[in-house]
Design a protein around this nucleic acid. Sequence first.
DNA 1: AAAAATGTTATGGCTGACCTTATTATTCCA
DNA 2: TGGAATAATAAGGTCAGCCATAACATTTTT
Lengths: 222, 222
Amino acid sequence: MTIMHLSESTEMYLKAMAELGGQDVIATARLAERLNVTPVSVSEMVRRLGEQGLVSHTPYKGVHLTKKGREVACNVLRRQRLWECFLYDHLKIDWSQVYEFACSLEHATAPEVTEALAGFLGNPQTCPRGNPIPAADGSFKPLDAMPLSEAKLGQTAQVLAVNATATDVLKYLQEKNILPGREVTVIEVAPMQGPLTLHVGGKDVALGLSMAEFVLVKKIKN
Amino acid sequence: MTIMHLSESTEMYLKAMAELGGQDVIATARLAERLNVTPVSVSEMVRRLGEQGLVSHTPYKGVHLTKKGREVACNVLRRQRLWECFLYDHLKIDWSQVYEFACSLEHATAPEVTEALAGFLGNPQTCPRGNPIPAADGSFKPLDAMPLSEAKLGQTAQVLAVNATATDVLKYLQEKNILPGREVTVIEVAPMQGPLTLHVGGKDVALGLSMAEFVLVKKIKN
DNA sequence: AAAAATGTTATGGCTGACCTTATTATTCCA
DNA sequence: TGGAATAATAAGGTCAGCCATAACATTTTT
Ligand SMILES: [Mn+2]
Ligand SMILES: [Mn+2]
Ligand SMILES: [Mn+2]
Ligand SMILES: [Mn+2]
């Protein structure tokens, strides 16, 4: 329980795992993708994280967070999403840029600052992208939602959260009005892993499956 | 003028020079002290900073900021002092801890965030330690003040700013009420580089010369 | 002017976090 | 069941920013 200082890189690996995986085992290749590093680099880092008891790795299967690792990851998520709230609600930073700015600040934020910030913000429950903010004690109930990529033709659903992180992806979703609270209807599902066509805000929008994986929705009807 | 990303270490060296030196040449040993690294490490870093055109070094004399280096340093100071304002005024962080928390955040703050923060705060002119906040365009008028260490016996002066950075030093000054706005009177000057004895807030306080160098005052009478 | 103090350079090391290019092991699928 | 795809290891590098120790240069003090 000693407060060791974890590097930015360490925090990012753990956070990525929490964002991608929830409870499950994560393929190292997914990590490499999201963190923009090579699979070899992930292997090396996973070894180091394993030695610190933050992750556990089953070769050829994947990695998952240990209890300790999940605690750290939730704490990073808390810092990140609180900063998102501040940047969006108080500094009026553009929605699509909020993640990336918060992603820098999260690693430079002491516990006292985190908790004071939470108080200042009125202990918000979700960030501007719709994701829940873990509590100070680490407790965290993930959204009861499904990825839009799994929606069937004709389905209407409400967007609960956007789990994307890349600014250009967020900008695209923002332009197309695929935002928390919005209702979307799947009007076409192209074959061969092709894009979904959605009806949202009076317009038709094409959305690739991999982007749709990061849009979390709740079924409304059909 | 390309926006290159400077490392935290680079920013800290430049900021330390601006805090210590103003315009003048700074002894590398002073930098080593303030940054808690060895003189050899400073030499190496000064070489790298020189290659980037951020400082200019005259061997055995000292180092000073170039125009470019001063611009960067002022920008770091701006970020740092804006965060100090936010942490102190809005998050109610303890005065003595505000510097160290801001000192982490400063390196993780994008220009858009800096300017939005300045707006949110109402473009403050000074930080809670009394130091002026450089403007967005880099312009910066240093305080017209003298270090308390140079005050004469019997002198009464008003504290304008505290330029110390170490949290324990700030805590000591806070406890002894040596804070911006306060009036202090020098009631004893011990020989042999000994401490000053001050009268402040109805109490007598001993203050070592090296700490007194970081207390900036304006003479009031005598 | 000599000695002491201070500052610089030269070497050699270390760590974390990346990279590339092979090679080897495992899993998946046709 | 055998080949393709995927994952892991091995080996050798890079880079920033630190460290120590020792040699050397300069400045300051006595
Ligand atoms: Mn981050
Ligand atoms: Mn800093
Ligand atoms: Mn070397
Ligand atoms: Mn190696």
